[in-house]
Nucleic acid binder design. Structure first.
Lengths: 213, 213
DNA sequence: CGCTGTAGTTAGACCTTATAACCACACAGC
DNA sequence: GCTGTGTGGTTATAAGGTCTAACTACAGCG
């Protein structure tokens, strides 16, 4: 996955090993969650002894940050590609849901419980904005005038969004994001356990009410 | 908070110390998250040496489970009391939001990233159902006929809900829960960081669209 | 071909959870 | 009121975690 065409052989090897480390890390996270991620165990799985791994990642946090970055990148690429193939918001929601289902802990690494005091590096928030930008595009054009009380409020607090999307568009993107995340995270966390309905259909309905607004 | 009127003095002392342990645990969780919770540190804060704490909680998981139970209990009582004082769904949403804001990590202990393989004990899921039951009451009466595609689906998968609430009511509770959790968890996790709007107003609008449905 | 820096090693400090073995005293029952 | 038991506390210890330090050996560059 990472570009393995580094200039020097050393560089290439380095990228290769970093990739293998992240691979094992993902396996651990998928089966036991990020809190159970053990650098020691990863090193031994790769046939090297504990501290050798610190040549590749300065510490546990740096490894996790790299994983967060890759997760964001993967989701952003998935969303971008899907939209470029002509998908609308409804299709995007299901692609995001499928992406989350392939590795729920990867989804929660991005959208789950935050670590107090941890500040995400700028490049990951930039990728997050990429995703939002695609959603804005996918919303298509909406009228320019605020139409609801929250539209009015948002119209006065939209410096973060630039001038291009209309306030109604921003509102719709926020609702889309929140409703999808609401159902999806409850579903993945098992809070619908025992209830036999299909969360995918609930998402459809939540979003259809969005579009019919 | 816990009933300190145990029969024997030993019993009372035990409840007292367990309470102090949980108190310190909450402080640690609030400032550093549940993954940083250290039984050793708690014991030393209470002036006793490490393993003494295992007289009160068999292991780390049991302490965390007790905290989860208390969190559920606190939220359920809050919701119940608020509703009994005449609140509607909109008011309930803001009370839940306020409850979450007083200790975001307590909210995430319930609704945040799940630990793979961890199965919540029955009594906590029972408390969770208490909360849903209040929400069903707060929804008030709704027509008996399914009105949307998801209503139809839900109508065939509602064995978990018993006979009393109508399918439309269940649908509305699920939407309320998902929309509130969607905005609230994104807000608490800092995903609206940089955006200057008031998430409380977004919740209002999400729920007003719900009621106008 | 030789120098340099990188990747690996082991040793160890310091933390964690958790168990085992032991001590002392508070309480319950007589 | 005395005594036996169990509870709450201790220290020691195992096993495992992160991470640093010191050292070795070799790959690749000039």
């Amino acid at each position: 996955m990472p570009d393995t065409d580094g200039r020097s052989p050393r560089e290439r090897y380095r990228v290769q090993v970093r990739g293998e480390i992240k691979q094992r890390a993902w396996e651990q996270i998928a089966t036991a969650g990020v809190s159970a991620l053990s650098l020691n165990a990863i090193a031994k799985q790769l046939g090297m002894s504990g501290p050798a791994l610190y040549r590749y990642f300065a510490n546990r946090d740096e490894l996790i940050t790299a994983l967060v970055r890759d997760a964001y990148r993967s989701l952003a690429d998935t969303v971008r590609d899907t939209f470029d193939n002509g998908a609308d918001l409804g299709k995007l929601a299901h692609v995001i849901r499928d992406w989350a289902h392939t590795d729920p802990q990867r989804y929660f690494l991005i959208y789950g419980t935050p670590v107090p005091g941890y500040h995400a590096p700028d490049d990951t928030t930039a990728i997050s904005n990429e995703i939002l930008a695609v959603l804005v595009e996918a919303c298509g054009p909406l009228p320019d005038e605020p139409a609801t009380p929250f539209d009015d409020h948002l119209d006065h607090h939209r410096a973060w969004a630039g001038d291009l999307p209309t306030t109604q568009t921003l509102h719709r993107v926020l609702s889309f994001w929140a409703r999808l995340h609401g159902v999806l995270s409850l579903e993945l966390a098992g809070h619908f356990g025992g209830m036999q309905f299909d969360p995918g259909l609930l998402i459809d309905e939540e979003l259809s009410e969005l579009r019919a607004q």
